[in-house]
Computed example of a mutant assay.
Amino acid sequence: MASRRSGRHEGEGGVRFSRTLFIALLVLSGALIAFDRPETRSAGFASFRSGFTDIAAPVLELAAQPVRGLKNIGPYFRRQGELAEENARLRQQLIEARYWEDLAYRQRDRIEVYEAALEIVSPATRERIGAWTVADPEGPFVRARLIGRGRDAGIDDGYPVINLYGLVGRVFETGRRSARILLLTDLNSRIPVMADRSNARAILVGDNSAFPRLDYVGRDADIRPGDRIVSSGDDGILPRGLPVGEAVETRDGGWRVQLYSDQAPVDFVWVWPYERIEAPDDTEALPAEEPDAAVENADEAVDAEPAPDAQPTGGEE
C-alpha cells in the first residue's frame, strides 16, 4: 500500500507546474495582451502574422469541412421534410390562385360588357404609375413617404397609392419629379371606408400607430372581427373598393384596422390616377322658359286640340 501511494504521489508531482512558472506565464500573457496594440506593432511582426494567417486559414478551412458536414446532417434532413410540406402547401395555393384568376377574368369580361352597354368609363382602366419610396423624416407629417416621380409622370394631388397588398395612403403634395404620400397611419389622415360584407360605413382615422381606428361607427353597425375593410368612395376623393385591411375589435369595444399594406415594407408603390366625381353646378341647370313663350305654347296647344262633335239641331230626315 505504501509503494502504491508513493508511486501515485510521484506521478502526480511529475505533471505539476511549479507555482513560480505559473505566475511567470500569467504575467507574460497579461503583458502580451496589454502591449499588443495595432499602433505599437512593428512592420515585420505584422507581415509575419498576416503571412501565417494566410497559410493557416486554408488548412483550418479544410479541417473544418468534415466536422461541419457532420453537424449539418441532422438539420439537412429536417429541412428536407419542411421543404416537402411547404411544397405541398404552395401547390395547393397555386391551384386556388388559378381558380381565382379564372374567376377574375370572367368578372372582368362581364364588367366590360356592362360598361359598354351603359357607356361607363371606369377609372380602373387607367394605367397605374410605379414609383420607389424613400423615408421622409423632415416632412410636415409624421407618417409620410417621398416618391421619385411627380407631375412629369402624370401624378397629381389626391391620387391613391397602393402596394402589392392594399392601400398605403394618398398623394398630398406633388412636384415635377417627386411627390409626398400621406400614409393611412398619420394623425392627419381621414378616409371614408366600409365593411365589404355589410357595407357598414365608418371613417378611418390615423393616430400615428400601426392600427388606425374606425370612428363614426353607428351603434348597430354590422362589423365583425376579421371583416374586410375597403374604401367606400363616399367623399369622391378615393375610388370605391380599394382594399384597406381587416377589422380588429379593441378591449373597450372600439374598432381598429390591421392594414393589408403592412404585410411588406413600403418600398415600391403604384400611384392610381383617379378623376374625382364633381357635384353638378347650379349655374349649369337648364334655363327656365320665359313667361310669354310659355303662354304662346299653351295657346298653340289649345288651338291644336280638335273641337268636340257638334250636337244635331234638326230632326231626323
Rank of each mutant, 00 (worst) to 15 (best):
A2I: 11
H9S: 13
G13D: 13
V15H: 13
R19Y: 06
F45E: 09
R49S: 08
T53E: 14
I55S: 14
G69F: 15
F77Y: 11
R78W: 08
E85K: 07
N87T: 07
A88K: 05
Q93K: 13
I95P: 05
R98P: 05
D102A: 15
L103N: 12
Y105N: 10
Y105E: 09
R106L: 14
R108G: 07
E112A: 05
E115A: 09
E115K: 12
A116M: 11
L118Y: 10
V121K: 15
S122M: 06
S122I: 02
S122N: 06
T125K: 13
E127K: 11
T133G: 01
L146N: 03
G148L: 07
D152T: 04
D152I: 05
D152K: 15
I155C: 04
Y159A: 01
Y159F: 06
R176I: 09
R180V: 03
I181W: 03
L183E: 01
R190E: 04
M194V: 11
M194E: 15
R197D: 04
S198Y: 13
A200N: 08
A210Y: 06
R213E: 10
L214F: 02
R219H: 11
D220H: 11
D222W: 14
G226A: 07
V230I: 14
G233Q: 02
G241R: 02
L242F: 06
V244A: 00
R256T: 10
Y260G: 03
V271S: 02
Y274C: 03
P280V: 08
P280C: 10
P291I: 00
A293M: 11
A294R: 06
V295M: 11
V295E: 12
A301E: 05
V302E: 05
E305G: 08
P306Q: 04
A310K: 15
P312C: 08
G314D: 03
E317I: 05
